[in-house]
Simulated scan of single mutants.
Amino acid sequence: MAGHSLPPFDACNLGSRCGDAPAAVAANRADLVQTLGLPASPRWLRQVHGTRVFDADARSADDDEPAADAAVTRASGTVLAILTADCLPVLLCTDDGSAIAAAHAGWRGLAAGVIEATIARLGVPASRLLAWLGPAIGADSYEVGDEVRAAFVDRSAHAAAAFVPTRGGHWQCDLYALARLRLAAAGIARVHGGGFDTFTDTRFYSYRRNRETGRFASLIWRARES
Rank of each mutant, 00 (worst) to 15 (best):
G50W: 14
T202S: 11
A23R: 06
P165L: 03
A223S: 14
G3D: 05
D201A: 02
R17Y: 15
E212Y: 07
S5N: 07
T118K: 13
A177R: 05
P89C: 10
V79Q: 06
A70S: 15
L14R: 10
S218D: 13
T84C: 08
V164W: 00
G168C: 04
L45T: 15
P89T: 09
D154E: 15
S41I: 07
A75Q: 15
Y205H: 06
G145C: 11
C87I: 03
E212K: 14
I220R: 11
A112M: 11
V164E: 05
A67N: 11
G37N: 15
G145A: 11
L83D: 05
H104L: 09
L83M: 06
H158V: 11
S16R: 14
A162E: 00
A186W: 07
V53L: 13
F152T: 08
N13Y: 02
D146M: 10
P39N: 11
V148H: 02
A112G: 08
A120C: 00
R182D: 12
R46T: 15
T51H: 09
L183I: 05
G138K: 02
I119V: 14
L122F: 03
A23Y: 03
T51R: 12
V124H: 04
T94D: 14
W44H: 13
L133A: 07
R222P: 04
T84K: 02
D69G: 07
G37C: 14
G193V: 04
E225Y: 06
G106T: 05
A139C: 03
T202W: 05
A120P: 02
G187R: 05
T35A: 15
F152C: 09
S76P: 12
T51S: 10
A217H: 08
R108K: 15
P66Y: 12
L36A: 09
C12G: 01
D174S: 03
L175M: 08
L80F: 06
A160Y: 01
T118R: 08
T202N: 08
G134F: 03
E143Y: 00
A23S: 14
A186Y: 14
L183R: 08
R149D: 05
C87A: 11
A71V: 07
F196Q: 03
L175T: 06
R52P: 04
A21I: 12
P165D: 03
L36Y: 13
P89N: 09
S127H: 03
V33Q: 12
G15D: 06
S226F: 04
R209A: 12
G77R: 11
R211H: 15
I119D: 02
L38D: 10
C87F: 01
L183M: 08
A177N: 00
H49P: 01
P7M: 12
A81W: 09
L91S: 09
F199H: 13
A99C: 13
A2M: 03
Q34G: 00
S98M: 06
D96G: 10
G138V: 00
T51C: 14
A136N: 04
